[in-house]
């Protein structure tokens, strides 16, 4: 039963990633694109944890943690670049 639930959640997050990709391609504003990238990072974290759950190993938590950190830093850097034209002043 858990396996089917993992598959269902994985399909949901995969479809969510596709919708985010569509918003990145269409998004009229830079803010929309940054927001869609941030959402993609969150969805990929969920997918990594799901994959670890499916395999039954705890290895993928480190990958998810690293992804969370890099995603936050990249979002802030992109925002600062749009805001000030420079990342570190």
């Amino acid at each position: 039963m858990i396996e089917y639930a993992i598959f269902f959640a994985g399909i949901c997050y995969g479809a969510a990633l596709l919708l985010d990709l569509w918003r990145i391609a269409v998004g009229p504003d830079a803010a929309d694109r940054i927001l869609a990238l941030d959402t993609m990072v969150v969805n990929v974290i969920a997918l990594l944890v799901l994959y670890g759950l499916w395999r039954g190993t705890a290895v993928y938590f480190e990958a998810a943690m690293l992804f969370a950190m890099v995603g936050f830093v990249s979002t802030v850097a992109y925002c600062r670049f749009i805001l000030r034209g420079d990342i570190i002043e």
Binding site: I2, A5, F8, A9, C12
Partner: peptide, 21 residues
């Protein structure tokens, strides 16, 4: 219980990106 949490989280993850579109 585990399956319920997984299904609910999948639905909410999809709803978040659907709202984004």
């Amino acid at each position: 219980l585990i399956s319920l949490f997984l299904v609910v989280s999948g639905v909410f993850g999809f709803v978040g990106s659907y709202g984004l579109v």
